[in-house]
């Protein structure tokens, strides 16, 4: 992970909000799936709501020491 992807770029909507948005959509799907379905819905909810934790752990493992 680099600190500054491109210091001249002004950033675009997708690179800034894309990651959080995908995780957000997945989280909401997970929150609802366990409510609507007892079996498969549960398994999906564990994966979908576990995503924020997994993604954080992944970024932590891959962080660059400066």
């Amino acid at each position: 992970m680099t600190t500054a992807r491109n210091s001249r770029s002004s950033g675009n909507w997708w690179t800034v909000y894309g990651g959080p948005l995908l995780i957000g959509v997945l989280s909401v799907a997970g929150l609802l799936s366990a409510l609507l379905s007892d079996g498969p819905g549960r398994y999906f909810s564990w994966l979908a709501l576990g995503a924020p934790v997994i993604v954080t752990a992944w970024f932590f493992a891959r962080r660059r020491r400066v």
């Binding site: 992970m1 680099t2 992807r5 690179t15 970024f59």
Partner: peptide
């Protein structure tokens, strides 16, 4: 906006 998502 100038940082990659997940920069630590």
């Amino acid at each position: 906006r100038r940082l990659s998502f997940g920069t630590l």
